[in-house]
Structures are given as structure tokens and as C-alpha cells.
């Protein structure tokens, strides 16, 4: 009885796994065959790379990709700096109103910037930052999640280390840089991976704030590319989709273990 249950359970697990991978596997199938094989599954259907060539020519993927990388890196850089400074102050410094400040920070965990698209759009229009990398990135710089995560980590650093550094004449910023940052490396890695995958995939806010190829990221580009009005066929759309997810997917497969562990670590807090 237990044996049968085991086999059933294992088969279910794999069936679900195949189902979960299916859309991706299907996109691969459709993209490497001529379009008449989109729904005809023949093992020896002729292979082709034309769909990729076509997709690449139909949309400025290179430009989109550069934009996405630039936006993601800009946000990550801003987040790492701002969150480190704020997290240290919240973890290790006594000052009036600390609890209130922390509560105001945590508010952003619930009220994420994309919910406030109407007002944030107005603000950025006022700053003349519409259709720029900074416009897409700025609302995400002060990440409550990052501040929270780093604060938790900084709290575990032994205070003796800090005191020793102080005695040696290390400045405040020097202490953060030489003592806290190196000890929090795993947290930085975890936060970075979560942040990169979030902003690589983010859509609604970039859609609102970008107007042209100048700053449009891959996700917004894909929404225009895939629109039925633009009349591309499915094989080409599949190829375009793979181009847009390719870089992140390759990085993910290479660093699978770190990714899963990072998400886990970020999840436990």
C-alpha cells in the first residue's frame, strides 16, 4: 500500500513539473520550427532560426535589453547604498523617533509604488523625469524590504567588532563599510537576486512612465511586440519571448542553487 502511494505521489510530482515547464518548452518548440509546425508536433520537423532573426528585426530588442539592464542596475545600486545607510541607523543607533521611522518605512511593504501610479506619475512629470531611466528607477530606491532585511542582519553583528574599529579610529562610514558590509554578504546577495528578478520583470510602472524606445524596458517592449494588431505570427512571438527571458533564464539556470537559497533566506527574514 505504502509503495503504491509512493509511486502515485512521485508520478504526480513529475506530471506537475512537466505541466509547469510546458509553456516554456512549448515556446522553444514553436520558435525553432517553421510556423506551420506551431500546432503540429512531428519529431522530425525541420529546424530553423528564422523566427529569431525575424523577431530580432521586428523589434529593437537590443535597445530594450540595454534599457532593462541599465534600469535594473540603477535601481539595485541605489537600493544597496540607501538601504545600507538606513538599515545601519535603524539597527545600531539610538535616536528619538526610531520606532516611528521604522513604522513609516515598513508601510512601503504594503503600499508599493505601483499602486500609487497616478500621483507618482504627476511627481515625475513635475521633475521632468518621464521617459528616463531615473524616472523608472527612483520610486524603488528606498526599498522597505531591503532596509528591513539588512537591519535584521546588522543586528546580529557583534558590537565588540564595531567598538574595536572605533578605538582604531575608524569613522562611522568606515565602520559600516569595513565591518558591517562584509559580514552581511549573503544578505546582499539574496536581496540583489530578488531585486534583479523583480525589476527585470516589472511592467506596470515602466509602462506608465516610459513613452519611447529611449527608456522602454523589455517587458513594455514585449507588450507592444505581442499585440495582435502588430500581426506577427506565433512562431515569431515565441522567439521574441525567448529572447526577452533568455538572459535572466540563463543566469538562473547557472546559479539555480543560490537563487533558490536567496529567495528562501529573504523569505524567512
Amino acid at each position: 500500500m505504502n509503495r503504491i502511494l509512493s509511486i502515485v505521489s512521485t508520478s504526480l510530482a513529475w506530471a506537475l513539473g512537466i505541466l509547469w515547464l510546458f509553456p516554456l518548452l512549448y515556446a522553444i518548440w514553436a520558435s525553432i520550427h517553421p510556423s506551420e509546425f506551431v500546432t503540429r508536433f512531428e519529431l522530425f520537423a525541420p529546424l530553423t532560426l528564422d523566427n529569431f532573426r525575424e523577431a530580432w528585426n521586428q523589434a529593437p530588442f537590443l535597445r530594450y535589453m540595454i534599457n532593462t539592464v541599465a534600469i535594473t542596475m540603477l535601481i539595485l545600486g541605489g537600493q544597496l547604498i540607501l538601504c545600507t545607510l538606513a538599515a545601519y541607523a535603524l539597527a545600531r543607533m539610538e535616536f528619538k523617533g526610531r520606532a516611528l521611522v521604522f513604522a513609516l518605512v515598513l508601510m512601503q511593504l504594503m503600499v508599493v509604488p505601483e499602486i500609487l501610479i497616478v500621483e507618482n506619475y504627476q511627481t515625475l512629470a513635475g521633475l521632468k523625469l518621464i521617459d528616463t531611466y531615473w524616472g523608472v528607477g527612483l520610486p524603488y530606491f528606498a526599498s522597505a524590504f531591503g532596509i528591513f532585511l539588512l537591519r535584521q542582519t546588522f543586528k546580529t553583528v557583534p558590537e565588540d567588532l564595531e567598538n574595536a574599529a572605533r578605538v582604531e579610529g575608524c569613522s562611522l562610514l568606515g565602520t559600516i563599510w569595513h565591518i558591517y558590509v562584509p559580514l552581511a554578504k549573503p544578505t546582499y546577495l539574496a536581496f540583489s537576486l530578488v531585486s534583479i528578478s523583480y525589476h527585470w520583470n516589472n511592467f506596470l510602472w515602466p509602462l506608465v512612465v516610459t513613452n519611447t524606445e529611449k527608456s522602454r524596458p523589455l517587458t513594455v517592449g514585449m507588450s507592444i511586440f505581442g499585440a495582435p494588431e502588430s500581426g506577427v505570427d506565433w512562431a515569431v512571438i515565441s522567439a521574441g519571448t525567448l529572447i526577452s527571458v533568455g538572459p535572466l533564464l540563463i543566469v538562473f539556470i547557472l546559479f539555480q542553487r543560490q537563487f533558490v537559497q536567496s529567495f528562501m533566506q529573504a523569505g524567512i527574514k
Binding site: A13, G17, W20, L21, L24, M222, T241, S244, V245
Partner: peptide, 29 residues
């Protein structure tokens, strides 16, 4: 189980793909 790494990869992959891109594939389905 044997192949647990692959299984985990399969389950986790949708999370990592941009909603917008995979929606194009689902649109075709």
C-alpha cells in the same frame, strides 16, 4: 527523490519569467 533538482527548477521557473512575456505564450494556448 532522484532528480529533485530538476523538479525544483521546473516548479520555480514560472516565478522568474516576466508575466508579460509568458502571457504571450498563454495567449496562444
Amino acid at each position: 527523490l532522484r532528480g529533485v533538482g530538476l523538479l525544483r527548477l521546473a516548479y520555480f521557473t514560472p516565478t522568474l519569467l516576466p508575466m508579460i512575456s509568458v502571457a504571450n505564450i498563454w495567449l496562444f494556448f
